[in-house]
């Protein structure tokens, strides 16, 4: 019981310490990653300069999956141990994950224009990302669909677990579908094995994105905790006012007697 009451406060104290470091790390890694990506790596023999979009696109796609995994983990924790922060963590993670997914879609589309000559091709990976984007949107929409915020979080937690089980099935089915309808000449995202000069910027931006996630997550958590606190205070104000009113009316009755 006590644990439950103290935890958010302890979390905020911890967040205060981590947040500046996450911010600094993000900026440094991202600067270094961009330097390597734009100036210190060769153009691809096949894709030319457009390959540099990969250094944003691939980490975004990784983050999209990473955030959905986190969503499933926090949902599991919320359902099994009923930890109040776990629900809030899911709320804080979902919009970040959705944004990364969106980023992966947009960069994929930009990459596709010079490569495929069109902004959108029903490539297996892009299609899976597109579906993942809708899984995120469903989660976010379900959270906010109820007048009772707590109830919305719990429903969304179940949805995240269901979605998480389904993600590999969806991925498998989309790959299957794609091989049936694949025109032979299309260059695939996966491409040949990555050269080590390309690996450095890729890993740097990937790490920068992880740091960026932590940074944004902590900011979002602050907001979520403040909001939860506001709700609690509002309700308790109504409650206290009512108790006070009952008390005075009781006193008045007693006086009348």
């Amino acid at each position: 019981m006590l644990n439950r009451f103290a935890n958010p406060i302890r979390f905020l104290r911890l967040a205060d310490q981590i947040q500046p470091w996450a911010a600094i790390l993000t900026l440094v890694l991202f600067a270094a990653g961009l330097y390597f990506a734009l100036f210190n790596s060769p153009p691809d023999y096949q894709q030319g300069e457009t390959v540099r979009i990969m250094y944003i696109h691939v980490p975004s796609a990784w983050m999209a999956l990473f955030c959905y995994t986190l969503l499933a983990i926090t949902s599991g924790v919320a359902m099994i141990w009923k930890h109040p922060l776990a629900n809030l963590a899911g709320r804080a993670t979902a919009p970040i994950g959705a944004t990364f997914t969106f980023l992966a879609l947009i960069t994929g589309s930009i990459w596709g224009k010079p490569m495929w000559g069109t902004w959108w091709v029903w490539d297996a990976r892009l299609t899976s990302m597109f579906i993942l984007f809708f899984l995120y949107l469903g989660y976010i929409a379900l959270q906010d669909a109820f007048d009772n915020a707590e109830g919305g979080s719990k429903a969304a937690a179940i949805l995240a677990l269901v979605g998480f089980i389904n993600v590999p099935i969806i991925k498998f089915s989309v790959d299957w579908w794609n091989t049936l309808h694949q025109p032979a000449s299309v260059i695939k995202f996966s491409g040949p094995a990555i050269h080590s000069t390309m690996l450095t910027p890729l890993l740097l931006t990937a790490l920068a994105f992880k740091g960026y996630y932590v940074w944004l997550f902590l900011i979002n958590m602050r907001g979520e905790i403040a909001e939860a606190r506001c709700r609690a205070l509002q309700v308790s104000q109504i409650q206290n006012a009512q108790v006070a009113k009952v008390a005075t009316s009781d006193a008045r009755d007693a006086h009348a007697d």
Binding site: I131, F134, L135, L137, G138, A141, L142, A145, F146, D147, G151, A155, I158, L159, V162, G163, N166, I169, I170, F172, S173, V174, W176, W177
Partner: peptide, 30 residues
Amino acid sequence: IGAALILGARQGSILLSLLVLPLYIPILIF
């Protein structure tokens, strides 16, 4: 699953399609 999740939600039917259709995709494909 979707029908149970949307009970008591505002905009239930639209929400249901958002929740359920992505999960239907593998069934459609196979």
